[in-house]
């Protein structure tokens, strides 16, 4: 506590500012990976959709070619149920797709994933704004604190 008020203040403030920065960066990275994960899901669903609509001879589609995970399969199952598409999924995987109803279920799943991605992109944009604003606000309030004390705001000492 001998290097000057503001130097001491900045060094001391880093005790809280650095962990907060670590938390914000971790959240931002997780959001980014969530966004990329959705992009991968959409790409796979598009591939599945392409396989269905290119299947002209009604032959069964190789389920391994779609490589959809359980969450996407569930989404397609739910969409298929909702729009009344049958013969779409067998044993929890897209299989023996020989009708356009199933393509509609997959298309609906794609549109839902795209809506999720769009919403997440919007949230990420606001997260950046809010986190920067909150961080600056914390720094400013930390800077105001010594000024308030100096001005005799805490009149208990006076």
């Amino acid at each position: 506590m001998t290097s000057g008020l503001w130097f001491d203040f900045i060094v001391g403030s880093s005790i809280i500012l650095i962990p907060l920065a670590i938390l914000i960066i971790t959240i931002a990275r997780d959001l980014d990976s969530e966004y990329k994960g959705l992009s991968r899901r959409i790409a796979k669903l598009n591939r599945a959709y392409g396989l269905i609509i290119d299947d002209q001879d009604d032959s069964p589609i190789n389920p391994n070619a779609t490589k959809l995970d359980e969450q996407d399969n569930k989404l397609i199952r739910d969409s298929a149920k909702e729009i009344g598409a049958k013969n779409c999924i067998k044993d929890g995987k897209i299989e023996n797709i020989i009708n356009n109803d199933c393509a509609l279920a997959v298309k609906k799943a794609i549109s839902i994933r795209m809506a999720e991605q769009m919403l997440l992109a919007q949230k990420i944009k606001f997260f950046r704004l809010y986190s920067i604003a909150a961080y600056l606000l914390i720094i400013i309030s930390m800077g105001i604190l010594p000024v308030l004390v100096y001005a005799g705001f805490n009149w208990k000492w006076k």
Partner: peptide, 9 residues
């Protein structure tokens, strides 16, 4: 005419 097989979960 729609699909004939039932939906299996």
């Amino acid at each position: 005419g729609g699909p004939t097989a039932s939906l299996e979960d």
